[in-house]
């Protein structure tokens, strides 16, 4: 399967003190581990279990994700703009494989 890049929406510019809305969307099956295949055998769990956001190296948001989260998780949060810098978004799945993307924001 070809890899679909995750999407993040970060405003390019923000005024100091603003609350900016950061949105993220990633394509993932989020296989719960509770389903069975046609032979009646369990399909192993494969979900994204960790989502982390770092801003200039410091963690600003993170989440432990469990099986109740549906496929293609959409996660949004607010961030108070204080300084210019780079957001690094990382999703990690059950096999330890991670996908990362970064986005810049300039604060004036």
């Amino acid at each position: 399967m070809a890899v679909k890049p995750p999407r993040v929406k970060v405003p390019k510019k923000a005024t100091k003190g603003d609350l900016v809305n950061i949105k993220t969307l990633i394509s993932h099956k989020m296989e719960t581990g509770n389903r069975k295949d046609k032979k009646g055998e369990k399909i192993p769990r494969l979900i994204l279990n960790k989502f982390e956001v770092k801003f200039n190296g410091a963690e600003v948001f993170s989440a432990d994700i469990y099986t109740a989260v549906s496929a293609n998780p959409y996660i949004a949060f607010f961030h108070k703009a204080e300084a210019s810098g780079t957001f690094n978004f990382t999703w990690t799945d059950d096999k330890g494989k991670s996908v990362a993307i970064s986005a810049d924001m300039a604060v004036s």
Binding site: A2, V3, K4, P5, P6, R7, K9, K23, L25, I26, S27, N72, Y74
Partner: peptide
């Protein structure tokens, strides 16, 4: 267009 879950496919 951001939340639309088809958009990662469009990016691909």
């Amino acid at each position: 267009d951001f939340e639309n879950p088809v958009m990662p496919y469009v990016d691909l």
